[in-house]
Nucleic acid binder design. Structure first.
Length: 349
DNA sequence: TGGCAT
DNA sequence: CGTAT
DNA sequence: GCCA
């Protein structure tokens, strides 16, 4: 409805994030989420000024957009070498805003510059314990400066009858009950290049170590070409409070074997998440909604319920007691929120 | 002025 | 600091 | 950058 304005604001949001102005970026994110959810075409400044999370600065930008059809600052940002270069660098796995700026300040401008800087041609990485695999370049989120293929997915409603279930060799009956997948698709974004799959098993013991074994199997079959992160692969620092490693996870690049009837040579990012059964639904929710949805849900849990929510569980803050919901709806009920379909958890640009 | 998810 | 949602 |  107001997607052009949203896109303009998102450019500024991206720029703020790349420049390390996190809080400003968050404000743009919120504002554009609100505008995105606004049900009518915005034609006047009055409409915008009534909206929450839109203050003096952003309503001014909206006014400019209404007058001219664009925002000068967005245009300037978009065409600037700095923005384009920082975006490019940040698109490489492992390079965030800070590293991107550092590399830029060193005078680097292209992926070729990065290859020289990192000596990537000779790089080898440990993919699995005891194995060494040659890679071409960095584990690519991009190739040749362009995003990996973004054509629509090959199907489908759920994982249970999908090409990827078959490709991964998952049993259909089990999958229906214990595997939840393709949340981008679940959210109604079939054009996404990501596939996320959350696994569990009624027996918590059987989940332990499954991530590594499963990835090893896919790698042996040539279906996983890169493993960017494997829980337990990086040394775990117990001083770190982050829950990043509390679920078993593998962040990989996936390609179908040529023998597959679905083979198209498309490489995708495939994220595999293995959750013990008691936190399966929090994992599903944590991997389903947009970033803004997650932040809002977590803030709500904290402010209204005094609880801590993330993909690895829900705990009461005062005694750290864990809560183990048995369905997605139980989580919403607990939080006093109306259950909404995943397609409505899509607040990002 | 402090908070902004984990 | 980087990554995932 | 916006809000309480």
């Amino acid at each position: 409805m107001n997607q052009d304005l949203v896109r303009e604001l998102d450019i500024i949001r991206q720029s703020r994030a790349l420049e390390g102005e996190e809080r400003s970026a968050l404000s743009y994110q919120r504002a554009l989420s609100i505008i995105k959810a606004y049900p009518d075409k915005i034609r006047s400044l009055k409409q915008v000024e009534k909206l929450p999370f839109i203050g003096v600065k952003i309503s001014g930008l909206a006014e400019e957009f209404l007058d001219s059809g664009e925002i000068a600052e967005s245009q300037t940002i978009k065409t600037s070498e700095r923005f384009q270069t920082l975006s490019l660098f940040s698109s490489v796995y492992g390079i965030g805003p800070n590293t991107a700026r550092r590399l830029y300040n060193l005078g680097l401008r292209s992926l070729d510059d990065l290859k020289v800087y990192y000596g990537v041609e000779r790089e080898e990485i440990d993919v699995l314990p005891g194995e060494v695999v040659e890679i071409e370049g960095k584990p690519p989120r991009q190739e040749h400066g362009k995003p990996l293929a973004r054509e629509p997915h090959e199907h489908e409603e759920g994982l249970s009858d999908s090409w990827i279930r078959i490709a991964l060799g998952l049993r259909e009956d089990f999958t229906k009950k214990w595997v939840s997948a393709k949340h981008q698709h679940r959210r109604g974004k079939p054009e996404s290049n990501d596939v996320d799959i959350v696994f569990t098993h009624p027996d918590a013991e059987k989940v332990k170590g499954l991530c590594k074994r499963f990835v090893r199997k896919l790698h042996q079959r040539g279906m996983v070409t890169h493993v960017m992160h494997l829980s337990g692969f990086h040394g775990h620092n117990p001083l770190r409070t982050t829950h990043w490693d509390s679920l078993e996870k593998a962040l990989t690049v996936f390609i179908l074997p040529q023998s597959s009837p679905f083979y198209r040579g498309t490489r995708r990012r495939l994220d595999l998440i293995f959750a013990p059964p008691q936190v399966y639904w929090t994992a599903v929710i944590g991997w389903s909604g947009s970033i803004m949805f997650q932040r809002d849900l977590r803030q709500w849990a904290k402010d209204k319920l005094g609880m801590k929510f993330d993909s690895s569980g829900i705990t009461r803050r005062y005694d750290s007691k864990e809560i183990h919901p048995k369905t997605e709806k139980e989580v919403f009920d607990l939080f006093g929120l109306e259950w909404v379909d995943p397609t409505w958890r899509n607040a990002d640009a």
